[in-house]
């Protein structure tokens, strides 16, 4: 059963890498089970593809398994075969039961961080001129209103950030504001967490609805200050 053991070893290695190596890289975090499962599936299918490329390698891999399942005169393995044939359906049944049974654990969730904005916010552009003065003013507003959560360094690590799940966005990450247009930020700041559509799970975000406190002009200035401070630039079409 050489190839089968190889497959198992390969999966164990992949599992160890996902579970213990990647999370310990600086700046990393543990991987969710769904992702680990995905990588293990890829490993397994890769192995299956390679093992069945030629008649010989397929025989080396599949032959022993087939003989174990259907061959005659396998001696003591007969009992193991019956064990497998009984256990496997039970395993499938158990899995199915586990997936469908009512449990008290909250379901896995998939919150869309950047859902589509409402139509009326997609085409706006800032009425405030991009002058050093305005940017500086925006940074001032940012320090006053935003930095407690989003951090003075625009990294999402303000003094109040730790209390929130999901945590405040990290603007210095190139996958956040750098992917979005200014009008998108305008919508998010103005309408806050409760303004999110259902796929953004408005009940989770603690972002305030700033439209009740700040005039539009201040929000536009904050956006300019934010991009400048985080050393990112907004998505544009120019």
């Amino acid at each position: 059963m050489g190839p089968l053991i190889k497959l198992i070893i390969l999966n164990v290695i992949a599992y160890v890498i996902c579970k213990f190596v990647v999370p310990n890289v600086p700046g990393s975090a543990p991987l969710p089970a769904s992702l680990v499962f995905l990588y293990l599936m890829l490993t397994t299918s890769g192995f299956l593809i390679f093992a069945t490329l030629s008649a010989e390698s397929k025989e080396a891999f599949w032959g022993p398994i087939q003989r174990f399942l259907t061959g005659e005169n396998i001696g003591g393995l007969q009992a193991v075969r019956y064990g497998v044939l009984i256990l496997f359906p039970l395993l499938v049944g158990w899995q199915t039961y586990n997936n469908t049974a009512v449990s008290d654990a909250p379901p896995s969730e998939n919150r869309t961080i950047h859902p589509a904005p409402p139509g009326e916010y997609t085409g706006l552009s800032s009425p405030v001129a991009k002058t050093p003065d305005n940017i500086q003013q925006g940074k001032g507003f940012y320090a006053a209103f935003c930095s407690p959560c989003h951090g003075g360094n625009f990294d999402g690590k303000g003094p109040a950030a730790r209390g929130f799940n999901p945590p405040p966005a990290n603007f210095s990450d190139p996958t956040t504001i750098a992917m979005l247009q200014e009008s998108y930020l305008f919508w998010r700041i103005k309408k806050g967490g409760v303004g999110l559509p259902i796929e953004g799970m408005p009940w989770k975000s603690a972002m305030p609805r700033w439209e009740v406190e700040l005039p539009d002009e201040w929000i536009w200035k904050i956006i300019m200050g934010e991009y400048d401070g985080a050393h990112q630039s907004p998505r544009t079409w120019e």
């Binding site: 139509g119 009326e120 997609t122 085409g123 706006l124 552009s125 800032s126 544009t236 079409w237």
Partner: peptide
């Protein structure tokens, strides 16, 4: 703002800001 981007269909041709 809502009319501009929906019923009025203004945004089908016009943009606010270069595009």
């Amino acid at each position: 703002q809502k009319i501009f981007f929906s019923k009025g269909q203004c945004a089908l041709c016009h943009t606010i800001g270069p595009s």
